[in-house]
C-alpha cells in the first residue's frame, strides 16, 4: 500500500464565498478535522454536487497505482484496479506553488496551491503537512463523502 501525500476529513463550511460565478463549478471552503487545515477547492458540481455542511475525506496521492509505481504522465484507459476505485471524485493536476502565509502572525502556516486543469485548490495549514509535497509534482486528488 502506497503512502498518501496527504489525507484528512473535511467539512464544507461554505459554497462560493465570492458569489456564484460559474454554472457548473463551485468553489468550496472547507476545514479539516484532524490537522485543522483550511481549503478552497473548485469542484465540478455538475458531476459531483456538494452542499455546505457535508463531510468528505480527501486524499492527495502521487499516483493511482496501488503498488505505488510512479505515474507516467500518460493516461491509459486500461481497466486496472486503482486507488480511484475507493473514491467518488478524482481529479488530476499539478502542484504549482508553495508559499508561506505571512498574515497569520506567530504560528507559521504554509499555503499549497494546485491546479487540476484549471480547477484550483488552495490548502492552508501547518508546515509539516507540506513536508512530502514538492513543486511541480503531479497530484491526484481523491474525494469521498462520509
Amino acid at each position: 500500500m502506497v503512502e498518501h501525500l496527504f489525507e484528512d476529513i473535511f467539512i464544507v463550511t461554505r459554497l462560493d464565498p465570492d458569489g456564484k460565478k460559474f454554472d457548473r463549478v463551485s468553489r468550496i471552503e472547507a476545514r479539516s478535522e484532524q490537522f485543522d487545515m483550511y481549503m478552497q477547492l473548485d469542484v465540478a458540481t455538475e458531476v459531483y454536487p456538494m452542499q455546505a455542511g457535508e463531510k468528505f475525506t480527501m486524499v492527495l496521492a502521487p499516483t493511482l497505482n496501488l503498488d505505488g509505481t510512479p505515474d507516467t504522465g500518460y493516461y491509459t484507459q486500461a481497466g486496472r484496479k486503482t486507488l480511484a476505485d475507493k473514491f467518488d471524485y478524482v481529479m488530476h493536476g499539478k502542484l504549482y506553488k508553495i508559499s508561506e502565509d505571512s498574515s497569520s502572525g506567530q504560528a507559521a502556516k504554509v499555503e499549497i496551491y494546485a491546479s487540476f486543469g484549471g480547477l484550483l485548490m488552495m490548502l492552508k495549514g501547518d508546515p509539516s503537512s507540506a513536508a512530502s509535497l514538492e513543486l511541480d509534482q503531479r497530484l491526484f486528488l481523491l474525494m469521498r463523502k462520509v
Binding site: V47, Y48, Y74, V90, M91, G117, L119, F140
Partner: peptide, 19 residues
Amino acid sequence: IDLPTPALIKPIELWTGKQ
C-alpha cells in the same frame, strides 16, 4: 498530439478547456 490526463477522472473522465 499527446492527449493529457483528464482533469476529472471520476465520476466520468472529463477534460477542461484549459487543458
